[in-house]
């Protein structure tokens, strides 16, 4: 049996909102250590890797490994029925064909229960764990979201170049061109505003703006985003959870 209780429904809401426009359905793999998901979008350009560790939950138990096939649009509708501050418990029997979703209002004496029909999803898993990294940038997630939105007004591609002491984001299209350069900065009073850049090799990569638009839907999950880049390899965009992460692997564009 699986039972996981979130202190606030808002966390699961944010996770599902960040995933549902990229993949319509995916398997949630539940073990005694927590819940993980790997899913690839239909065009096989963007991969989502989610880990919700056991410690994220107020209470967690999973007696036997369970795979829950979940339609994210339907899941989003049901979890949208709870208030952000409610306790949210997900519950499934070992051979369940539904997922129980229970909201508890912390003030009123009110409990709401829903059942989501589970799906049988056949999906392959990609080996993404052994990637090397040439450059790592950590910056405020809201800043990264604004850069992606601003550059998307110019072009369907965003070029990222990283040198020893700066990262440059630039786009060029029919109406013109633009660029944003960021440099490392330590803000002691507001550590969430700090920017770090570490570099083994200079980077010059281009990514599709429409996929970046999907990635930045995770902005509300974390104040920071970490971008790991390697020449001629997918970019990794990581939003940390209180215990775990939501990562996106985005295949780069290349010149013919």
């Amino acid at each position: 049996m699986l039972e996981g209780k979130f202190e606030e429904a808002s966390l699961l809401k944010k996770i599902v909102e960040a995933m549902k426009d990229c993949v319509s359905s995916c398997n949630f793999n539940c073990t005694e250590n927590g819940i993980s998901v790997q899913a690839v979008d239909n065009s096989r350009v963007l991969l989502i890797s989610l880990l919700i560790e056991k410690d994220t939950f107020e209470e967690y138990r999973c007696d036997r490994n369970i795979t829950l096939g979940i339609g994210l649009g339907s899941f989003s509708k049901i979890i949208g029925n709870g208030a952000n501050s409610d306790y949210l418990t997900i519950q499934a029997e070992d051979d369940a064909d539904t997922l129980g979703i229970i909201f508890e209002d912390k003030v009123k004496d009110k409990i709401s229960e829903y059942n989501l029909k589970l799906l049988d999803i056949d999906a392959d898993l990609l080996e993404v764990d052994a990637m090397e990294t040439d450059a790592t940038i950590t910056l405020p997630s809201a800043d990264f979201a604004k850069i992606c939105k601003d550059m998307k007004t110019l072009s369907e591609s965003l070029q990222i170049t990283v040198t020893k002491d700066s990262a440059k984001f630039q786009s060029a299209g029919e109406i013109g061109s633009g660029s944003v350069v960021i440099k490392p900065k330590t803000d002691i009073d507001h550590p969430e505003e700090s920017i770090t850049i570490s570099l083994d090799k200079p980077i010059d990569l281009s990514f599709g703006s429409k996929y970046l638009s999907d990635i930045i839907k995770a902005t509300s999950l974390s104040q920071k985003v970490t971008i790991k880049l390697t020449e001629d390899s997918p970019g990794v965009f990581e939003y940390k959870l209180p215990s775990g992460y939501l990562r996106f692997y985005l295949a780069p564009k290349f010149d013919e």
Partner: peptide, 14 residues
Amino acid sequence: TGTQGRLDKFFVVK
């Protein structure tokens, strides 16, 4: 503005 790559070019199936 370049050709979009696919993940299958970079990662093998587990």
